[in-house]
Amino acid sequence: MKAAVFQGIKDIRVEEVDDPQAGPEDVVVAVSVCGICGSDLHTYEHGSFVAPGQIMGHEFAGEVVEAGDEVSGLQVGDRVTASPLVPCGDCPRCLEGRYNLCASAWTTGLAYGRPGAFAERIRIPRSIPGENVFKLSDDMSDEQGATVEPLAVAVHAVRLAGDVEGSTALVLGLGTIGQQVLQVLRAYGARRVIGIDLSELRLRAAATLGADAVDGAAGIDAAVDAALGEGEEVDVVFECSGVPELARAALDTVKAGGTIVVLALYDDPLTFNPTALVQKEIRLQGSIAYTSDDFGEAVALLSSGRAQADPLITHRHALDDVAEAFETQMSKDRSLKVLVTPGAPPSS
């Protein structure tokens, strides 16, 4: 089969590789569509997270074409998406049910150790419906299925923030994760969601999804001042940009007693004075990936229409054009979510 293989910085090649085979507990999925994630760009630009020879891609949907004898609840023909995490199941975090914090969940996961979904087929080990494999309803497209994974990231982050109903929330950075965060905030009852970015394309998408989208060209302080009403405060900030200056600015922006949730990955170290955390009693919360429950909730939000996929998708490329797809995804002014289609065109 064909697969896109990472060979080094800005070097991803379509190669012929062996077809995956399902073991007794596994399913093999024919991939119809796979999105390019921000973490994929860190690999593409900097060589982070994976070694050369890795098949990347972890935001995907497709059809089960092979199921092992011991697999229950899944069969050939099912349309599915899946969590790329492959936790060990035995460490303290796994025993707590916090599989996203398992030390090996990513290093042995799909696209981060095991072959990923920029390929015509992918094997999902130990396939259990509702735990790591999630069926798509007939009213969900494959493209929607490919946006479940980043939506699950947002579900997890918003849940970590606590009760956001009636709050004023600020989202810094309106890439795919920022857009998904603002959708979950709206679904969970936030009174106002303010999104800040520099990209006109991303600001338009955020406005379509119900945010008060603000151009940050004049600086975050000016943007926040322009967005807030008299006496209004920011209850919670979601840092999705990966820009150190914005992460530091979040400390000044959030109200005393407020919460900052950091989802972004950073290429450069971040320095700040933690005295602000003490003096304002700010809760600084990191957020990584998701649990099975978060993943299931993301499917439900899309299926019910409380979250949308179409406003996020700006480009589609065939697998043979994966290098062009990555270059497109790197352009923040002209792309939001770029999809790669290894198989037949995704269903609509």
Rank of each mutant, 00 (worst) to 15 (best):
D215K: 01
D221Y: 04
G109S: 08
D11Y: 00
T328S: 13
C240Y: 06
P20Y: 08
P52F: 12
G77R: 12
I282Y: 03
T253P: 02
D235N: 13
C91M: 10
S167V: 03
P92R: 09
T108F: 05
S241M: 10
L101M: 13
S83W: 11
G130E: 07
T107V: 15
D221V: 10
V27P: 06
A223D: 02
C37I: 08
T147E: 10
R316F: 02
V29F: 11
L301S: 06
Y290K: 04
M140H: 06
K255P: 03
T147G: 01
D225K: 03
Q54K: 05
V340L: 10
E59D: 13
L265E: 14
L319A: 04
V29D: 06
Q75R: 15
A256Q: 04
R93F: 09
H42I: 07
P125N: 12
S199K: 04
Q180C: 15
R204N: 14
R248E: 15
G130Y: 14
D294W: 02
E327L: 06
Q75K: 15
L251W: 07
V148E: 04
I128H: 09
A152H: 10
V262R: 13
S331K: 13
G210T: 11
V322L: 14
F238N: 07
V50Y: 03
E245I: 07
R334Y: 03
V299W: 01
Y188Q: 13
S32M: 09
W106Y: 09
E230G: 05
S83C: 07
T275G: 14
L182V: 03
G189F: 06
V17S: 04
V299Q: 05
P87G: 12
E281C: 11
E45F: 13
A249K: 12
R191C: 02
S104V: 15
E200K: 07
D138N: 07
L85G: 05
Y44F: 15
R79V: 11
E200P: 11
V17H: 07
T341Q: 14
A344R: 15
A3I: 11
D197Q: 00
E245A: 15
S104M: 11
G97D: 08
A67C: 02
V234R: 08
F49T: 10
T275Y: 10
K280T: 03
A22N: 08
G195P: 12
D18I: 04
S304V: 05
Q279M: 13
